[in-house]
Design a protein around this nucleic acid. Sequence first.
DNA 1: CGGCGGCTTGAGAAAGATCAAACGCTGTGG
DNA 2: CCACAGCGTTTGATCTTTCTCAAGCCGCCG
Lengths: 251, 251
Amino acid sequence: MNQIFRNAALRVPCDQCPLRVLPHFREFGPSEIDFVSSFKTGELVAEAGTLLLAEGMHNAHLFTILSGWAFRYKTLPDGRRQVLNYVLPGDLVGLQGTIMGELDHSVEALTPLILCVFQRDRLNELFVNYPSLAFDVTWLASREERMLDDHLLSVGRRSALERAAYLIAFLYKRAVAVGLGAESLVRIPITQTLVADTLGLSIVHTNKTLRKLVMRGLIRWQGRACEVLDIDGLLEIAQWDQMQERKRPFI
Amino acid sequence: MNQIFRNAALRVPCDQCPLRVLPHFREFGPSEIDFVSSFKTGELVAEAGTLLLAEGMHNAHLFTILSGWAFRYKTLPDGRRQVLNYVLPGDLVGLQGTIMGELDHSVEALTPLILCVFQRDRLNELFVNYPSLAFDVTWLASREERMLDDHLLSVGRRSALERAAYLIAFLYKRAVAVGLGAESLVRIPITQTLVADTLGLSIVHTNKTLRKLVMRGLIRWQGRACEVLDIDGLLEIAQWDQMQERKRPFI
DNA sequence: CGGCGGCTTGAGAAAGATCAAACGCTGTGG
DNA sequence: CCACAGCGTTTGATCTTTCTCAAGCCGCCG
């Protein structure tokens, strides 16, 4: 179980990429699409729970998520785990490993996943011949940094309730931006254990905290997933000045 | 007070940059140096306490630290502050603001500072004509991300004592890498209030925690600065698998 | 000399961790 | 079809860590 399958049959051509048509993403010129198309070596399908990248790996793969959710995390030698961020469709994964030689975090599939796989060693070519794409890569790295900044503020300075509200609002916004969740119903497919490891809290206290959000009618928790009922209520508790995201690139 | 001064007199030509000769940094080709040289518009001197970049700023500057320490932070509407990272010589600052339009964090000088100032609007030119430098920019963004990952793990999952040990070891390593601190004596110029806001702890508890490290003979605290006496002891408490940094770029 | 920022310490309060136990769902094997 | 195991969720009780409040010390600067 938990394997990665090569998926030739379902391969989506880049010029028909279902993500690129979303208003959330910037448009590409034809030559950019051509290059990305050649940069892509194939697709992979992974089931929930698959370890996509492991801490310490060299020669990591480089991919973007086509569909599904994943998460990045690190662990301490004694097993304590910290979730660093979540990975949604359109997000680039494994750049660190490609650029710095060795990966210092792991990435695991949260749901079944479809991934576009790119040739690591052609990243150089991308920088030389497609400066606009190179800029996009940097843009994406910068965006990740921004999300981490926010998350760090949260874990360092917000109370448990505020943190939980922030996290759920954050994931909700991201999910909506990439077209997940029909008609104001977004299912965020996380377990409470994962929430605990994201917020830096124990599972028990996380449960009690989420319970408060449920009692107040802000969220609903059903079958390993969270649904948002009152996004404004969450934003208010979190005291979150939202980063309003404008059009973003993706590769 | 707390002003920024333009500093024409002391201007260091890039080809004689005192940082570039450090073994820590990668070497540049002549054309790279030429471009960086033209990219640089001047130098600034700032005294300790100066706010270099403020959250919400558009059109932020883009600079590298030539000498001195600074720190990046974010605040919640009610004033709670979280230090995100420290900025040392050779580090690029303001990239986020340049790349994403609006800055979402602030940067403040911790000591007197000398900065190289770059022309934001020529970043595009850099990407088009100097792919190797563009790659370096991405590399640096990726490095920042890695440091944030580590910091997040720390704040989320380490105990107060472990966090403090980690932070000090981290700053020590970085300071040594860029040639600060003669002969095994490194002065890390931070206040305990700042440590508290970095670790996500109260000042009182931070003090009690640092006191333990002092008692155990691992560090010394003198006049708004911390000195490391036993780096291995700190690393052990922090359970820190160090990222051994190889040669890195800088702009 | 007085004020302020940084450091230190004690005492009591609160947030969050740990321990313990139970429930419900799902998938598996008999 | 049923028993059972395992995971995710829930709740109560107790313990620990960390916070807040309060106060005092020191050195520096105006």
